[in-house]
Amino acid sequence: MTTHSLSAGALHADRIAKSFGGLKVFHDVSFTVPAGGLLGVIGPNGAGKTTMINIFSGRLGLTSGQVMLGGTRIDGRSTFEIAMMGLVRSFQHTAIFNGHSVETNLLSALRFSRRDRSVLERLSPLLDQFGLIDNWQRNAEVMPYGLQKMLGLTMALATQPNMLLLDEPAAGLEKSERANIDTYVKFAREEFGCGILLVEHDMEIIKRLCPSVIVLDGGRLIAEGPPTDVLSQPHVINAYLGGSDEEDSDVTH
């Protein structure tokens, strides 16, 4: 991977490894999310997916390797610095400012990322479809879980990121609400030109949205390619169903 090919805002993980004491969460993992591209990340619980997002977003440091955003190395930088460089994350659970209205939550996202209200105008079709305009002045804390989740995701998009890290955006949503994730991802890519790293357990969403996925298991990247191909590979199926002895031996103590 050359610096030239990364200069347009691609996210590149180069042989990254993370250990907590003697526990290796993952090691020697490399992949690239092209600028404006979409890459799915799947893997069983404990595969290190959220840890990876925490590293990319500056919450955790790397043990070895490097993470590049465009031509700039971002690992080791603070969370807010990385966010200001255009790489913004969402959270598995609802992440909003409790006790404040929907409007204040969104205006806070604009203020912290130094964007103006015109971004909200661009987001208004999405806000309308998710039902957030109907709840504009409502205390966000008392809204249903699904609305809180979509508010959190919309706040991330209101920062106008170049690259979004979505950590299980469909987790906790009812089946009928999951179509909102499709709308969100398409809107982010088409309207804002965002690249997206999508960590998700819902394979239907992965198949619908992602042209390409990587599979993490036991801290290693065990497969990559189009979802339908990857999900039919026996070692990927074993990783999910626990049928392989490799899974336990991969997490080295």
């Binding site: 977003s57 919450r59 603070s78 969370t79 807010f80 966010a83 200001m84 913004v88 994350r89 959270f91 992440a95 909003i96 400012f97 409790n98 006790g99 404040h100 204040t104 205006l107 806070s108 996202a109 203020r111 912290f112 990322s113 130094r114 959190g152 706040m155 991330a156 920062t159």
Partner: peptide, 18 residues
Amino acid sequence: SEFAAIETNDVLAESLGL
């Protein structure tokens, strides 16, 4: 806005660029 965000959810506030 900044203080309220830090008081309520500082991890989210930082992830938005604060």
